[in-house]
Design a protein around this nucleic acid. Sequence first.
DNA 1: AGCCGGATCATCT
DNA 2: GATGATCCGGCTG
Length: 221
Amino acid sequence: MGNDPTPPDLDALLPRAFYARPAHVVAPELLGRILVSGTGDATVALRITEVEAYEGETDPASHGWRGRTPRNATMFGPAGHLYVYWIYGMHHAANVVCGTEGVSHGVLVRAGEIVTGHAEATDRRPAARSPKELAQGPGRLADALGITRALDGTDVCDAHAPIRLAAGEPVRRGRVRHGPRTGVSRAHDTPWRYWIADDPTVSRYRRHTPRKRSPKPGDPE
DNA sequence: AGCCGGATCATCT
DNA sequence: GATGATCCGGCTG
């Protein structure tokens, strides 16, 4: 929690082959890795503490489940690219594309700890009441890193890309926890959310709550 | 500290 | 026209 004696190496990026495996296999191995946005003074780096896997071919909760569309096209592309989507009319969320080309696998980066660029992140997330809230949840994380739909398709294996993914320090198996995914309405039994045990930046689990529909004439009270 | 409801719009049916 | 891989504020306890 205190200041790291040795700051992480933000230039040692993970190779594309790392991502070329099923999303639920890659997901736990992404914990402890570093997502880096921007350069120079505007650099913000985040140590990943919570992720969720989605696999379109077998997974009704995945955006890829009903096939390729303009929105989710990046998920069907090559591994190691960023799939960014816009949801609830107000939030962005970032996934790392996994698996093989033509298959829609992705890992949603749900939460993390800001390790570099604290001031810049706070500037983008004025609502955060403490450092741990800066990127506690996918929408907050996207805000803190300045991730928008304009960055959809970014190659995170490219050292010159606006968003990169550095190797950081992988988390020991014994420190990884897993359970059902947050906020999904389907496939509740698939325990593909992974997080670092006891990490304060991990978001609280929230079950999906169905939206109240607008009343129609003739409906019972 | 935890639960609940409203906000808000791109995407797909 | 309904829905959603969410967040925030307000209320309860």
